[in-house]
Simulated scan of single mutants.
Amino acid sequence: MANRRQFLAGLLATGLAPVPTWADAGNPAYLSAARLPDGRYVLTGLDREGVERFRIPLPDRGHAAAAHPTQPIAVAFARRPGRFALVLDCRDGAVLAQLHSPEGRHFYGHGSFDASGDYLFTTENDYDAGEGRIGVWDAAKGYARIGEFASGGVGPHDIKLLPDGGFVVANGGIDTHPDSGRLKLNLSTMQPNLAYLSATGALLENVAPAHHHASTRHLAVRADGLVAVGMQWQGDVASAPALVALHRRGAPLQMLGDASALDGYVGSIAFSGDGAQVAITSPRGGTLEVFDATSGALVQRLAEADICGVAAADHGLLATTGLGHVIRADTATQTLQSASLAYDNHLVAIAPRG
């Protein structure tokens, strides 16, 4: 197999072989980490109807994945605070590279390619300094780490590419350390923010939620640059404010809804396929909420046990649950598939819509 891959890599380098596309991996539309009934972990590829197209073993629990924009390559990230990420060929499951966070760093479970797919950007914690970093990895050099820049805050969790080639980062404000596992070390002084960075890592703008216990965690970006952010409340759940917001640069956060059905926790966020709606999930609250992206009005609240993954679909939204269900959810709901596995937190659209 190694000789075959080396041979094909040589052909690609000389331009004699076609560059593989996602069609060569069965035309999946989504990626999701999952747990099998026997406790093993996998990365799955699902088509537009939620039908499984491939399943690749993972060494431990995965969180989110980054999909290459054109080639059938996925980067599977360990759950925070993780030290590994695997670059996977989704045609056959081959591990193309294994990324390890540098000394003094750990991953936060998310990453993003740039528009060309030439570079991968990863959210990381400089845990001795207690500061966020964005790692930069060069795909052409076998995903060698070639640099890093500041995330604009503490505890960068999610990162998304913006239409102008820059990035938006959800700095959750929470300091962690591998020696303390998932213990949150600075809840009394945490300072979350939404940071906008240029393509070269320069801080352009940041905006903080009104409450410092509203940890900014997950992001979605519409084609016109509108950003949606889902938060997780780090105080008394009974006093949690609204935990969903829309944002444009230069403006304040536009808060949506309330936290009454969320148990203080937003697990994922996504725009609908046409960009007209934004949806959030709460596995703790067993709830999916859909808002009108123009008015901010709540248009649907769906009760569904252990729902968390959500992503744009051709005509709305698709969601996944820890019970193995794939659900079409917008102004109507329909269970499309049921599988004997537990989907993890995020459903990642391979070709972003909306």
Rank of each mutant, 00 (worst) to 15 (best):
S116G: 10
P163V: 02
H325G: 04
E52A: 14
A33D: 02
A270L: 06
D175E: 14
L31Q: 07
D38E: 05
N125T: 10
A9G: 07
A223Y: 13
L58Q: 02
P57Y: 11
G267F: 06
A139V: 11
S272F: 11
L194H: 01
R217A: 13
A214V: 02
A223N: 15
H315A: 14
G173W: 09
F77L: 05
L204R: 14
Q232Y: 12
V299S: 05
A220V: 05
R222C: 08
I327Q: 05
K141A: 15
E205Q: 10
D258Y: 09
A150W: 12
F291A: 04
G264P: 10
G111P: 07
S260K: 13
A349H: 03
G173I: 14
A332Q: 14
R35A: 15
Y41H: 12
A242N: 03
L226D: 05
H346L: 01
W137G: 00
L317A: 04
A238S: 11
G39S: 06
V221F: 02
M255C: 03
V207S: 09
G322N: 04
Y196I: 13
H315C: 05
T281F: 01
F291T: 03
V169L: 11
L43C: 10
A29S: 14
N206R: 15
I159Y: 04
T122K: 00
T189H: 02
M190I: 03
L185Y: 07
R53S: 09
G117N: 06
D330W: 10
G165Q: 09
S112Y: 00
T189E: 13
V207H: 09
L341D: 01
L36M: 14
D118Y: 01
Y108D: 00
N206S: 15
G135L: 03
R248D: 11
I73W: 12
R79G: 01
Q232F: 08
D258E: 08
R35D: 11
A144Y: 09
R248L: 10
N193L: 03
R35P: 00
H157C: 01
I174P: 12
A144E: 15
L187N: 07
G201S: 09
G50E: 09
R105D: 02
M190H: 07
S340V: 12
F167M: 06
D236H: 12
R182A: 07
A329S: 09
A150R: 13
H100A: 10
A303T: 14
F271Q: 08
D164L: 13
P18F: 09
R48D: 14
E304H: 08
E148N: 13
V237D: 14
L36I: 01
L11W: 07
R5F: 13
N345W: 04
E103T: 11
V227W: 00
A85I: 10
W233L: 12
G201H: 12
Q334V: 05
Q277F: 11
G147T: 08
T70Y: 08
D164I: 06
G250H: 07
L185Q: 11
Y108R: 02
I307W: 05
D179E: 14
R353Q: 11
D314C: 10
M255Q: 07
A276L: 07
K160T: 00
K160E: 13
A64L: 02
V310A: 13
K160W: 00
P352L: 00
L8P: 00
V237K: 12
G286H: 07
G93L: 02
G15C: 05
D306W: 06
Y196R: 15
Y119G: 04
N3C: 01
S282R: 02
I56S: 03
Q254M: 02
S32M: 05
S188Y: 00
L36W: 08
D114E: 07
L161A: 13
